[in-house]
Design a binder for these strands. Structure first.
Length: 313
DNA sequence: AAGTACATCAACCGCGGAGTT
DNA sequence: AAACTCCGCGGTTGATGTACT
């Protein structure tokens, strides 16, 4: 059936994107929004295929991209979601705000896959890259922020090409917030993307620009504020959702005041029963049902609940 | 210092599904 | 219903960076 041959056209640029191309694409999408990828390059004046533009935007240029280290919580969630979903990277990425399917796929292939295959390796996979001759783990990226160049965008003297190298600065320090309810300048404090901009946490309640991804932003806000803590609570605030919507949602409304401190159950017994009955397209979720991060992973990790739930969708 | 091996990740490729004509 | 277009996904590749010898 009619396959798109856009990438096969001759005369189109391929390979690494230049800063100029990035700028053109970003500005076009800011003005006209995402979508209509096939016609986008022509209208934007880019010599790229639509697919390439889409990929560049989704994986790199999108403003809500979170770059830098995968946190231990994220890592744990990826592992559990992968156990449940397999290589459905886009679904897994949907559960990790700011992360792209490509990034998670790469992270899995380079770190977690090995870790899973070799369960003897304990601890964060990112610390298990290399071993010296004494068998001690040596992180290939074992640079502290002090070691980072002042500006990651500065091309090395030998590289004056306009091609953008899209390496994110990685942070190897862990900040523990002794006051978990105070806003925390967490790991993002030391993240730096290749465009040279430091990413700072937004003040609580600061309604930053979000181009229609409010639920994502809500989740990100909480994640930003309590990122290092594994016990942030996420609160469902909806009356009726479909399974697919739930799976693809980002657990939008946050209400920590109503959090069940035990946080053991994501869903009520009634709801789980409902889910396990199968054949239902929709479930009723009680308002203010409390979800905690570990509960989500526990649920997904369960023998029945998560899998049944997904099968139902 | 140079060469080699390995790790990382952005980008490409091909396919299938959904939507439209 | 068939033909077609567009989009998104997952697998793979290749350029680059880093560690080791």
């Amino acid at each position: 059936m009619g396959r798109s041959a856009c990438c096969a056209k001759e005369g189109l640029n391929r390979g690494a994107w230049t800063a100029h191309e990035d700028k053109v694409l970003s500005e076009y999408i800011k003005l006209h929004g995402e979508g209509r990828w096939r016609n986008l390059p022509k209208k934007a004046g880019l010599k790229r295929c639509g697919k390439s533009c889409r990929l560049r935007w989704l994986n790199y240029l999108r403003p809500d991209i979170k770059r830098g280290n995968i946190s231990p919580d994220e890592e744990e969630l990826i592992i559990r979601l992968h156990k449940l979903l397999g290589n459905r990277w886009s679904l897994i990425a949907g559960r990790l705000p700011g992360r792209t399917d490509n990034e998670i796929k790469n992270y899995w292939n380079t770190n977690l896959g090995k870790k899973i295959r070799d369960p003897q390796q304990q601890g964060s996979a990112s610390n298990l890259k290399h071993h010296n001759k004494n068998g001690e783990p040596v992180s290939k990226k074992a640079k502290t922020m002090e070691d980072m160049p002042p500006n990651m965008t500065s091309p090395s003297p030998s590289k004056v090409s306009p091609v953008v190298r899209t390496k994110a600065a990685k942070c190897t320090k862990v900040f523990i917030n002794p006051h978990p309810h105070k806003p925390l300048l967490s790991h993002q404090h030391c993240e730096e993307n290749n465009r040279g901009g430091l990413m700072f946490d937004r003040p609580a309640g600061d309604d930053h620009t979000n181009n229609g991804s409010s639920s994502l932003s809500s989740f990100s806000n909480i994640a930003d504020q309590e990122n290092s803590s594994s016990d942030f609570l996420v609160d469902f605030d909806m009356n009726e959702i479909s399974l697919a919507s739930l799976l693809n949602s980002d657990f939008p409304a946050i209400n920590c005041d109503n959090a069940d401190q035990n946080g053991d159950n994501i869903f009520s017994e009634e709801m789980l029963q409902h889910l396990n009955d199968g054949g239902h397209d929709c479930v009723q979720v009680q308002p203010n049902l409390v979800l905690n991060f570990h509960s989500l992973t526990s649920f997904l990790d369960g023998d029945q609940g998560g899998e049944e739930w997904l099968r139902g969708s």
